[in-house]
Each structure stands twice: as C-alpha cells, then as structure tokens.
C-alpha cells in the first residue's frame, strides 16, 4: 500500500480527508510502529484519503511541557502549528492520547485549531457508519479482554465509551478492572516518566497496574496509547505472564478483524 505525505498531496494539488498524526512513538518505537501500520492499513482498506507529515512531523512537546520545560514545548508547538497551518490542515487523527490532548486542548491557545480525533473514536465512528466492517466470528470473539483507560483519553478528556464500543463490536467479553474509567490507574509513563527512571518506591507503577489487569483473568489487555503498551507489557513480563497475557492496541485488534 501507498502512504502519501502531506508534501506529496500538496504537490499534486490534492487535499486528503484527514491528516494521520503518527507521533514519535508510532514513528520510531518498534512495538508502536505495528499499531501505526495497523491503523494505516485500516484507513487504506476502507478507502480514506489520508496523509502523514512524514519527516516534517515533530514531537508535539508534550513530555517537555509536563516535565516543566515550557520553552521547548513552545518551540515545538510553534514549528508544528506553522507546518500544519501552512498546509491548511483541518482534521487530524492520532494514535497517541498525549498528542491528542495537546492538539485538542493546548494548541488552540497558540493558534493551532484543528478538529482532532483519537484513533479509537475515529474507529468507533467508522464502525458506526458501516465503513469499517468487522468479520463474523473473528479472532477475538468471546475472548475475555480487559481495557486500560489511558489518563489523557479518559480523565484528561472524558473519552471512556468510544474505545469500549469498538471492543464490543469485536464481540469480546469485556471484563473491567476494579480501577477503570474515571478511577482508572495510570500505567506510570505520563508526565515524562517514560523518559526517566522511577523515583524510589516499594514497587513500580506499571507492575502494579499490570497486576490489576492480570487479576481480571483477561488474556488480552486492550490499550489506546503507545506508552501504556510499553509499560503494561513490561509489567506482564515482570510476572512472566507474557505467554498467556498480551497487550494490544485497539487499532491492531480492529485490523485483525476486518471483514
């Protein structure tokens, strides 16, 4: 399949339906790249004209801002908004809830106004509109699956139902963790923790959250964030349960279930 960059669209005078903001994890992290590819495959399969920024995409500045480095955040924001406005981007979809939060809540004050969607909401709409069709009796049918709310999709932006509706469309048996929805527990990566060693404590946040997920007896932990994916996978490995419990992004699950 062909993935075209915004520069290529602009050169041919075409306008894509939506810009797929891949994010740094989705671009570089090997595990997250699989999610990127899965989501791009879905978009391609249902015939959505989408573009990526490619080499012109930069970090949104989220980890810098949350670590306290506002200068760096503002520089990244300035550059990204400059690029996006230069192309006249109106609609953005992203596979990272941190990028989503920045686009939805923090870029508008800086002159970056876009209609932004997280990929789980986007997928839910595609399913509702009948554009994405799920095959009967797919790989996940009847499977016990738990869903981990990422902080920046859940509490941060009150999106709890769209990802769950996508999972329900896969005909799974959804088992909730004790801490879910607005009381969901962080995977431990947010606030730039992903990029440093944890402070001294009795255990790690991701170990604790992975234990909660495993306690449900689910064989798959469904997630919506590349950082949660890494953290929970590590937590499950710590208990040596990686053979029986896997962490999957909702986009990967949909891609594997397309009719």
């Amino acid at each position: 399949m062909q993935v075209r960059s915004m520069a290529e669209y602009a050169a041919s005078g075409e306008t894509p339906e939506v810009l797929f903001w891949v994010g740094c994890a989705g671009s570089f992290d090997q595990r997250a790249q699989k999610v990127t590819k899965a989501f791009a495959t879905i978009l391609d399969k249902v015939g959505i004209k989408f573009a990526i920024l490619g080499k012109e995409e930069m970090c949104t500045g989220d980890p810098a801002r949350r670590a306290g480095n506002e200068f760096l955040f503002q520089m990244m924001a300035y550059n990204n908004i400059h690029t996006l406005n230069g192309y006249g981007i109106k609609k953005v979809v992203t596979i990272c809830p941190h990028c989503f939060n920045i686009f939805k809540n923090e870029y508008p004050a800086l002159g970056g106004n876009y209609e932004v969607m997280h990929h789980t909401t986007f997928l839910q709409q595609l399913i509702n509109d009948g554009r994405v069709r799920i095959k009967e009796g797919g790989a996940f049918k009847g499977k016990k699956i738990t869903y981990h709310d990422s902080c920046y999709l859940g509490r941060g932006n009150n999106i709890y139902d769209a990802p769950r509706e996508v999972l329900q469309a896969l005909d799974i048996e959804l088992v909730e963790m004790k801490r879910c929805r607005s009381n969901g527990m962080c995977c431990g990566a947010g606030g730039a923790q992903m990029f440093k060693e944890e402070e001294a404590g009795t255990t790690r946040v991701n170990f604790e959250r992975a234990n909660q997920a495993m306690e449900t007896g689910a064989s798959i932990v469904a997630v919506n964030c590349p950082f949660c994916t890494t953290m929970l996978t590590d937590g499950i490995k710590n208990k040596e349960k990686e053979d029986s419990v896997s962490v999957m992004d909702i986009a990967e699950m949909v891609a594997a279930s397309l009719a």
């Binding site: 960059s5 740094c24 671009s27 992290d29 990127t36 590819k37 080499k55 990244m76 990029f195």
Partner: peptide
Amino acid sequence: MAPWKFSPDDRDKWVEEL
C-alpha cells in the same frame, strides 16, 4: 524532534516497510 535519539530522517521509515 523526538524524545529518543533517532534520526528525524527515519521518522517515516515504517512507510517503506509497509
């Protein structure tokens, strides 16, 4: 332009793989 030490030129490398 990314929190990890990757070359910005490799940002869309996944496209080739796809």
